[in-house]
Design a protein around this nucleic acid. Sequence first.
DNA 1: CTGAAAGCGCTTACAG
DNA 2: CTGAAAGCGCTTACAG
Lengths: 359, 359
Amino acid sequence: MKSLRPTVLDVAERAGVSVGTVSNVLNGTIRVSERRRQRVLLAVEELSYTQNLLAQGLRRRRAPVVGLCVPNTSVAYFAKLVDAFEDVASSRGSAIMQMLSHDDPETELERVSTLLNYRVGGIVLVPSVRPARVLDAIAQSGTPLVVVDRPVAGERFDQVTFDNRSAMTQAARSLIALGHRHLLLVARLRGLVTTRQRMAALRAAARSAEADVSVTFLECNSYEQEEIVRRLVDALRGPGLPTAVIVSNSMFAACMLRAFETLGIRCPDEVSLLAFDEPEWAGLVTPKLSVVRQPTLVVAHKAWEFLIRRMEDEAAPVQTVQLQAEVLIGASVGPPRQGEAVRLASGGRAWLGEVVTPA
Amino acid sequence: MKSLRPTVLDVAERAGVSVGTVSNVLNGTIRVSERRRQRVLLAVEELSYTQNLLAQGLRRRRAPVVGLCVPNTSVAYFAKLVDAFEDVASSRGSAIMQMLSHDDPETELERVSTLLNYRVGGIVLVPSVRPARVLDAIAQSGTPLVVVDRPVAGERFDQVTFDNRSAMTQAARSLIALGHRHLLLVARLRGLVTTRQRMAALRAAARSAEADVSVTFLECNSYEQEEIVRRLVDALRGPGLPTAVIVSNSMFAACMLRAFETLGIRCPDEVSLLAFDEPEWAGLVTPKLSVVRQPTLVVAHKAWEFLIRRMEDEAAPVQTVQLQAEVLIGASVGPPRQGEAVRLASGGRAWLGEVVTPA
DNA sequence: CTGAAAGCGCTTACAG
DNA sequence: CTGAAAGCGCTTACAG
């Protein structure tokens, strides 16, 4: 029950070798004669010695930990990502230090700085809206970084992202093909790269459609469910009800369903719903939610692979990959009611509206 | 852009003081004259110096990090717990290192050992089924520990738990009062303390009921949704369909709904459903899920409070608190169909059955 | 109040 | 292949 833990010195003494030899055996840095090797291993066993990772990290100038910083874990997609990453990292013997940025650049900078002060060996980051400073800080520290999900400009970092354009194009075409002419996109932040990409793809799809298609955008920057529902209800109350709504994450999907309920809007009879992000409850609600499924596990593995490569070789060429997401149309998407669609579509040619609820 | 970070030495030199003084200013250990203090602060600013937490931790023999180990984050409750804890910890300037045990004692021991090797300042643990070894390891290391959610025997550790008995008693009484006479409890592990507590309370409620009430227990040790659904379907197919089902977490709740759907069982007309744990989709499904809500935020704060206290004073008296959960009966619970209930209840006096699906 | 010095537990050139 | 020694960047008694 003695609480002073054994050190390399104790092991060395017991094994009758030098501390350097102990270290070499433990880390496999240099070949050690089998005889001594066994003696060291035995001593380690007998003393139940474990390395002090703090000391090791200090000496090596890099801790065997990887830092992970995501906006939050209330959104299903990020939660899954964190889980997947935790798994791959710890199966590789690496600890992970997790931070949440809450999508606030200040908080993000602060959290990542902590990571940096721990001299983590690498960082996986889902950047916030304005990641310039945090990216600079990481770059300056020379810490390997993999940017995930939200691409950042330039060729400075390894990135694993999704092909949001292609996913949105596919989704929009499906909706338009079904007869939808009034599409609404709801996202938390218009400034986000992913939002922009999706918006652009949606507009393009609308423009290239045979018929006139209107696209409206609604920004709703909140994490508070009740507030989101309230704002969605307000937005749906106005004139020009969309025939189909696309939301950017699982939380909005949940809130949108509640907004429908509040207003007595039937889905998909009156309005269709499709969500980027696949919540676990997608198959439980009636109608089943249509989703854009992102391959979380692949992301985690790719990010890990990139990070390892980068840690091995700082100068390796920049690695990027853009993964394909899968559009799964479920019961929450159906053809629009004929009368409704016609009435609203009579407005003329493609209208690219933009509605922003007051902050 | 120089990547060699400044050290206390650089700061000391620039400020024209000793490194000890720099340290004292930064940590507020000892009073430093205002003049020198300002000079140090200025130098820190100019060099944009940040402490190396690895070195600090090594020297202090304790890193300013707290370790967190939970079974997983697929269960809504644990996910919320992790989130809440991340928030309180980082708002207090402490980093958190997160590990998942997957409820496997081996994995748990391994993950916690890593935490210990980092010399974390404290650990918050939701223990696995057989936590004896991991608890010993933590105790021996002298690391402050707070046990959360699942109580462990003895008075060795600080604990923040729920009053599972009282919650279950309340839930069972509600169901029985509605006329339910055949109750099924589904949990992942029968060996878990929380499962035992709930089971005991359920049995007690059944025994003390006016009428004959049967209680059946189903263990389903899996994390794989499809597999869970399959086994629930099998269990529901047999004779003696329960009139009400209580499940132990959100994943089971989701799977149970799918099992109902598969079998064409209407809820709550044919079978009522109530879940310990409150998934975010509880209000989205039809019928709305009845839940036992656990005060996650309070847990996180209590755990933090206990941990801080323990870190300050190892010898402080053991702190424990048992929080009350809230039973929220929603539309998924209703009176049983009269005929059915009578038919099944005719079997005689209280039957405390136990069904275990094969692993 | 301040500085010089020891030491936290490891790894890694450097000789041999 | 092996050992003795320096040093990673801090904090903390210890003198003054």
